[in-house]
Write a protein that binds this DNA or RNA. Sequence first.
RNA 1: GGGGGUGUAGCUCAGUUUGGUUAGAGCGACGGCCUGUCACGCCGUAGGUCGAGGGUUCGAGCCCCUUCACUCCCGCCA
Length: 597
Amino acid sequence: MNRYRTHTCGELSFKNEGEQVRLSGWIHRKRNHGNLLFVDLRDHYGITQCVLDCDNDNFDLLSNTSLESVVTIEGKVVVRAGKTVNEKLSTGQIELQVLKAEVLSTAAQLPFSILSDNSDLSEEARLTYRFLDLRREKLHQNILLRNNVISFLRKKMWSLGFNEFQTPILTASSPEGARDFLVPSRVHPGKFFALPQAPQQFKQLLMVSGFDKYFQIAPCFRDEDSRADRTPGEFYQLDVEMSYVEQEDVLNTVEPVILSLFEEFKEEGKTVCASPCPRITYRDAMKIYGTDKPDLRNPLLIEDVTEIFKTAGFSIYEENTKNQMWVRGIKVPGLAEKSRSFFEKLGEFVKKEGFSPLTYLTFLENGEIKGSLSKSLKEDAVSALISKMEIKENDGLVFVSGKGEKAEKIMGALRMLLGKEMNLIDESRYEFCWIVDFPMFELNEETGKVEFSHNPFSMPQGEMEALETKDPLDIYAYQYDMVCNGYEICSGAIRNHRDDIMFKAFEIAGYGHDVVEKKFGGMLHAFKFGAPPHGGCAYGIDRLVMILANESYIREVIVFPFNQQAQDLMMDAPAEVTEAQLKELHIKVDIKEKDKK
RNA sequence: GGGGGUGUAGCUCAGUUUGGUUAGAGCGACGGCCUGUCACGCCGUAGGUCGAGGGUUCGAGCCCCUUCACUCCCGCCA
């Protein structure tokens, strides 16, 4: 007999009646009736009720042992009678009559209860005592879900003929992109490694090496500030790369993997959108949804009504249209019921971002038209709006005028705000789409310079000819994102495998031959020796699990996450190191007084 | 780098509006009673640098200033 257990705490049923068994676990909860004691024993697998009365030699021991202490209990499996069955417990048909108990490890007073749900606890306490937080049901299940997701993805990728490789963690710093985490070299004074922001160049080199199909559950390191859906420091990607493929080949390979993942792990009662999921161009997404990661559960659409407002009689917008600004509107069913203060709130929201004024029309059931524009629009303009927007009773229209991406994003935020306020978002669906045709370059409005808008390794559509003949801002890249319920879950591209096109693209972004050679020499050099056309993508594993777990915060699916300030409160990292360590690394710290903490 | 929110017992929070006796509750801890509970019940006890520092005041948890921590957002995230 194993010293600690013959069964787990989730295992026993009426089938084990009469057996003498041994369980080990944490004391989850006790109910002490004075002369009768119930102990709920918990392990990873479940909870089993153990019972003993005051005649039992172990009564005092178990009565006095604190919650969350680890004990071994030996006892006899007894089937519970009638009313005493607990339907809520998988082992609720039986209980263990205690014969012998041993305390393996006593728990000190807990900083928080393992029993309560985690919604009402400070992040600081949860992260400092993460090992206790992880004992709690919800977080424990989230982390298991993560394990299952990763297992599913690995099996799926292997079955599709992809090979998994590990790429270096200590590598070279790269220009562009996020800030790097640097690691000093002891052997090479004054030189630094960087932790990879993604295994981008390595996976491309694996294609050049002839492995054809690669994937990796890859750690990625980016020194950027956190968000609810973005952990600072490090995260994991399902990193994928394939040779001899065009854009559609990549999309058609990975899309079924992800849709089947969601079919497998979706929450009960939820539906996954059908394959193939929609492909939306970046330009359309910005125009219709006001974002490059549209939440398609929201039925509201942004419509262009610039033409109508050119002659509608509302002078502010008329002026705007003469200055290349658009007027866009959102039709919202049921909006006519909303109070004036609701629209004022919307107006404030837009105004805060520097766009003003927000205007609106509501169409009451009695045919009356109200709203801030009801008096100022010409009659034929109103009819034009009614017919273009297919207005029905109780509908409302809100309008904003502006230009450029920033204004488009305001429309997008307004669309989501209205969707939420009007309860239009169908929480029971997972809606996916691909965003395609991202611009290769964009204009930095501060510097006036042309920059890469996304991945500099992407192949421009039209290849060399486009780079040589077109306005850089009109060139699209073979670059695509996959979006689920408003979260960007994947980003990828067909790569530029030609060194001549690469030099040209970097030249347009202001990088000279020498800089490109120095920074991407490894990969460029490889392209000189026969590089297959290739492309791929990378899914954010943490984010996928977060969506599947129906969590709003990415920390809820990471075992040992950083806090918002990128610190590990449990391990107390980052921390100062000894002078000797610094000396060996040829490093002198130079901290300004105001930056000291 | 910027903006918002929060900080009171081990945990979750009330008290801050309008400054005024000894800062409260629930859970947890500890002690007592209780033989069928499963969020067991009942009685009692202990537990506080009101995040920290300074100021105003006869008097500050509450008002003012500074600062720290946590969190959400913007910037940033090829």
